[in-house]
Design a binder for these strands. Structure first.
Lengths: 225, 225
DNA sequence: GTCTATAAACAGATAGAC
DNA sequence: GTCTATCTGTTTATAGAC
């Protein structure tokens, strides 16, 4: 479907407007309440559209779900793709580590940030627990390329084989921290006695994760000079 | 299953049997598919009980949800409570660190293990994203006491203030890794090319987390002798 | 306590006018 | 493309026999 030079700007027919509104409302509501807990009536209402328009544009509720996933995949790919591509650490361990830290901090900003990305993050994380078409889409378009790059950088930084268990699981353990702080935010906030999750709180979390990255690299470096 | 002196043995009337079966089926299905995605018919069928019995015993679907949460809270408290109470590191940093590692490895075994605990873990993690009565129950009976103890041990091991940001968030970052490996298991398994999640895979994950714990302690130790 | 039968509300999907 | 009205199935909850 689509064309899509950047996203949907060039081919803005009349219907694409409500189509887009439905997808955005879908991402928001599916992310906030879950797929099953969200009714098509809610979505249509939130998008200021008619109930029947979901069937017209996407064939049904499940079609909307898939369209949301593809939208999320495209959006993320557009944001994170260029960043990953621009990284070229050569074979300098220090540069590789700096790049690794940069990517993780970027993911943290994306996942923990306040903006519209919050809906996308919620939707994505939720779908990761339900194997299916959406899972495959997000895995292929976001998880796999990002994780591969992370392994490459972490392998360079430590001098370890990028595809070893240590590096692959190590990268997951670091990225997992960020994801946990996203999912378990309510728990963390209650324990930390945070009223809201503002930039100051996000910064504190990032400091901890950054420390853990450096501790990992320092501890797992292969050749100690 | 069942028996369990500290749970429901003393007042084992006739109806308590189906009541228990409904709760167990509820935990399993709510955990696997989510609350909204699970119908009362499914639960009753899985528990070999009648649909009307849910309303009779719990007042309705929401009542069953709460009963499941209380059951989970009681169960976890019964398992983890004695362990936490038995720990007395005195003021020996090395002993405190060993105890911390022991607790986290225990949590990992619990969350990642194959057994019935898997249902409990799924149910618990799922409810953590939905603030409400269930959230409060699990937080008060499991998260808070365990996290407090973890902070105490980690504070002792590093020589830092147990209620400092560093220690509280650090404890979350370590426990969060384990929780992530539970939630994101499908992603990790696909990337690692694991067919199933057997004891060998759990052991590999535990090795990584253990390394991260030691790296954290080594890096954040206050008084370097 | 357990069951059948049914009520009342709600879900997603669709037909057809415009 | 968008709308209203409606169909069909399923949901939770309940009434009442046993």
């Amino acid at each position: 479907m689509s064309s899509d030079p950047t996203l949907f700007t060039s081919t803005e027919k009349a219907g694409d407007q409500t189509r887009m509104a439905l997808i955005l409302a879908g991402i928001r509501l599916f992310g906030a309440k879950g797929y099953e807990a969200t009714s098509t009536r809610e979505i249509a209402s939130a998008a200021n559209a008619n109930i029947a328009s979901i069937a017209y544009h996407f064939g049904g509720k499940e079609g909307l779900r898939l369209a949301c996933a593809q939208m999320v995949g495209r959006r993320i790919h557009g944001v994170v793709g260029p960043v990953l591509a621009s990284i070229d650490p050569g074979d300098d361990p220090a540069k590789a580590q700096a790049a690794f830290e940069l990517v993780i901090m970027g993911v943290a900003d994306f996942l923990l940030g306040q903006a519209e990305a919050r809906d996308i993050a919620s939707f994505m994380v939720r779908e990761m627990g339900v194997p299916g078409t959406v899972f495959d889409t997000v895995y292929a378009e976001f998880i796999l390329p990002v994780h591969r790059k992370l392994c490459l950088l972490l392998g360079l930084a430590t001098g370890q084989d990028p595809e070893s268990d240590l590096i692959r699981l190590g990268a997951f353990s670091i990225a997992g921290q960020v994801i946990y702080f996203r999912i378990g935010h309510a728990v963390v906030a209650r324990r930390m006695e945070w009223e809201i999750a503002g930039p100051a709180e996000i910064a504190r979390i990032k400091t901890i994760v950054l420390g853990n990255i450096r501790a990992f690299v320092a501890t797992n470096r292969k050749s100690l000079p």
